[in-house]
Nucleic acid binder design. Structure first.
Lengths: 354, 354
DNA sequence: TCCAAGTATGAAACCGTTTACATTGCGAGC
DNA sequence: GCTCGCAATGTAAACGGTTTCATACTTGGA
């Protein structure tokens, strides 16, 4: 593996000149530059990243910490981050699936000195210490933060208002007994969606019944289980709001297995609008969020924060979470559960994907 | 930001001692070690990663290059890699969505010197140059490689035999006119699955009809479009093999929209067995692959290769792709399309997820 | 009493870059 | 013919660690 010294020796110049050639400094004779490049390619020389980071104090790398990697939502967030950082010629150092604050701290330490900034989704309190620690060295951008941290930018979805709109929609359709399948405990998104659910009920003068709030963990299987539980509840709910689409899929399967028709017997609304939602039977009414866009926006904020240096303010951005009405809530269908618009031959309505 | 020198000065020792304390060398007086750690935590000292990499020539980082990040399959692969590398205390440097060989090369260069090994899914020929180049410096593990590269380990799914088994199953059920929806051009997985499809037909003495091979790109929308096309084909196919589950979902929606029943009118088989497949209506017969396991296995191979150093052989591993029969192919259902086993109250059969 | 072996620590070289500063050579202006 | 300024390049000091080798101090056995 050849170093800058090898190139310098063979090309008959000093290492400073080689460095200048590779960094596009103008004050080098074109002829010399040509020779250096020639030798470099011959020797397959490529600057050592670690050495560069050491002197320049820039790594051209962004740290990304997510609580979990399971499911389409997170993968879309990463996709957005990846795409946008490539644009700015940044690499991404990924770390996820931390079950507790201790692990987050360790992961954070391991990243220190290898990243120019950290994009972090920290749905639980335990991660705050890590955020504070990292923040003293490099800018941090938070995704859907539970608590805003002084000096950190953040991007979040309007989880609360999205959920509230979804449930309000159900109420508008005449539903009064509405159940909810929650996300994992301690997850901010999940909590905000639950809060939106409750608020929509009280807004309408209804009394939130805790027996109507079922546990879940964002996976299909818990949606399925909740479906069985819902059918035993008295009064039996006429509508269900699932905290994400994955659980809605499980729920639909459970209802079908029990011979119930959606939306005729029970209306269903999900959250996230993952790719398949439009293709379900019936097509799922859900709250659309642009997970990929969340990632992109985070990178943009990061670029701004890095530019600003320590003076970087704490910009807060909110991304919309908009209700997308399809058939599963009963609003645009007579209750057959069949794809109305598609019957005409067109593709089902779906949100635009960038 | 404090350095090793700051700690040494405050603790009244040399930098060598501080380094020894942090690297758990035994030959340091416990009392001294305690003082050093005390000072270090006070000063919030943490070793600089770049400097460490420079001297030790180890980065404790694995590069991961994927062609794409879209869809559950890739996200599961990353999840597997992430989990297993955490186990070995490695970080992962992620890069994806390269549209051509040039971009792959650039990404590869950017990683050089920052990684101890590279896990790469290189579905097209253009990436081979990058593989060769990187391989001269650090071990490379290939995922589902098109061509085996001398000196590289690889892990792959039995795409070919999985597809062949799926189609053979359809033939066994009496289907003769079977269509296939392909994956993106240039994608090895897609090509292997197509090859398996053709082989199953010829195995059964059937003549593969090119008009039955429809284009697709692994996304739901192309499955939907293919559905419309299939209904116009003469002879009309009685079964369809989709190269992945996402397209199968789109196909199911298209068939439903056209009033066809699955599996009674048309049987459908997918590939991948993503989380929702068991919960579809009807539950999707598909070929199960453990994408997460693929990632894990790749990391294990990498650890072996790094251990072995330059002497590392070229281990080849094949992971099974097994047919999981559910209702959509008509084999375990009278054709109602309803969830048989779940009607009894149990959760639908699904592959085990680790 | 002396030496060998061991333990704890320090000094300094090195890893591969970037960059501030020094040096050289040369043409222009006086 | 000098000096000045500039272009092109070289020298050497960082950057923040690890590690080899040397050194000082104990300790124990002959």
């Amino acid at each position: 593996m050849s170093t800058i010294r090898d190139v310098a020796r063979v090309a008959g110049v000093s290492i400073a000149t080689v460095s200048r050639v590779f960094n596009n400094h103008t004050l080098v004779n074109p002829e010399t530059a040509g020779r250096v490049l020639e030798v470099a390619s011959q020797l397959e020389y490529w600057p050592n990243g670690a050495a560069q980071s050491l002197t320049t104090r820039r790594t051209h790398t962004l740290g990304v910490m997510l609580p979990e990697l399971f499911g389409e939502f997170y993968s879309e967030v990463i996709r957005g981050i990846d795409r946008q950082s490539r644009l700015h010629e940044y690499q991404i150092l990924l770390s996820s699936s931390h079950s507790n604050g201790e692990e987050v701290l360790i992961a954070g330490r391991a990243m220190l000195g290898r990243i120019d900034g950290l994009i972090m989704m920290a749905p639980d309190e335990a991660s705050i210490e890590t955020v504070e620690r990292v923040r003293r060295r490099v800018p941090v951008v938070l995704l859907n933060p539970r608590i805003e941290v002084e000096g950190c930018c953040s991007v979040a979805f309007e989880n609360f208002s999205g959920a509230r709109a979804a449930v309000a929609h159900l109420i508008g359709l005449g539903h009064r007994d509405i159940a909810m399948i929650c996300g994992p405990e301690g997850n901010v998104d999940a909590e905000e969606r639950l809060r939106g659910f409750r608020r929509a009920l009280t807004d309408a003068g209804l009394n939130p019944d805790e027996a109507m709030v079922l546990p879940g963990d964002f996976r299909e299987s818990t949606g399925y289980e909740a479906g069985a539980a819902i059918l035993c509840r008295r009064p039996r709910p006429t509508a269900v709001f699932a905290a994400n689409d994955g659980m809605a899929v499980g729920l639909l399967a459970a209802l079908r297995a029990a011979g119930r028709r959606v939306p005729r017997d029970i209306a269903v609304v999900g959250f996230d609008d993952i790719a398949i939602s439009a293709y379900l039977n019936p097509p799922l009414t859900t709250v659309s969020v642009d997970a990929c866009g969340l990632g992109q926006r985070a990178v943009d904020l990061m670029m701004g924060a890095m530019e600003a240096g320590a003076a970087g303010g704490s910009l807060r951005q909110l991304l919309p979470a908009l209700l997308t009405v399809r058939a599963s809530c009963g609003a645009d269908s007579a209750g057959s559960g069949f794809l109305e618009e598609a019957a005409g031959g067109a593709e089902p309505a779906r949100r635009g994907r960038k």
